[in-house]
Amino acid sequence: NQASVVANQLIPINTALTLVMMRSEVVTPVGIPAEDIPRLVSMQVSRAVPLGTTLMPDMVKGYA
């Protein structure tokens, strides 16, 4: 089972991601792979992401 990136806190719209905002977790459906966490740092979210939400490619500007 592949771990995905999950929000560790509420991430407001247009916030630049930092390591403390993200954790890896095995979830369904699968989201952005956990190994991409270093690449996500400083990228902005395109919408508010609630705590515990799996990050999907369309939620991060410039990821897809």
Rank of each mutant, 00 (worst) to 15 (best):
N1V: 15
Q2A: 15
Q2W: 13
Q2R: 04
Q2D: 15
A3T: 11
A3Y: 15
S4C: 05
V5F: 02
V5E: 01
V6Y: 02
V6Q: 04
V6N: 01
A7K: 00
N8I: 08
Q9F: 12
Q9E: 11
L10N: 10
I11E: 01
I11H: 01
P12Q: 11
P12T: 11
P12I: 05
N14K: 06
T15M: 09
T15C: 04
T15Y: 09
A16E: 05
A16L: 12
L17G: 00
T18I: 05
L19N: 05
L19D: 04
L19H: 13
L19F: 15
V20A: 09
V20R: 12
M21T: 03
M21I: 03
M21Q: 04
M21W: 02
M22C: 03
M22R: 00
R23G: 05
R23E: 03
E25N: 12
V26Q: 14
V27I: 09
V27M: 08
T28N: 11
V30L: 15
V30P: 13
V30Q: 07
G31D: 01
A34Y: 06
D36C: 06
D36N: 15
I37K: 06
I37N: 01
R39G: 10
R39P: 01
L40G: 00
V41N: 04
V41T: 07
V41F: 09
S42Y: 13
S42D: 06
S42E: 07
S42G: 12
S42M: 09
Q44I: 12
Q44R: 11
Q44G: 05
V45P: 02
V45D: 01
V45F: 00
S46N: 13
S46L: 15
R47Y: 12
A48S: 13
A48E: 14
A48L: 14
A48I: 07
A48T: 10
V49S: 02
V49W: 02
L51G: 13
G52N: 12
G52P: 02
G52F: 05
G52C: 07
T53S: 10
T53Q: 14
T53G: 11
L55Y: 02
M56N: 07
M56H: 11
M56T: 13
M56Y: 11
P57N: 06
D58V: 10
V60P: 01
V60A: 01
K61D: 09
K61A: 12
G62E: 08
G62W: 07
Y63P: 04
A64V: 14
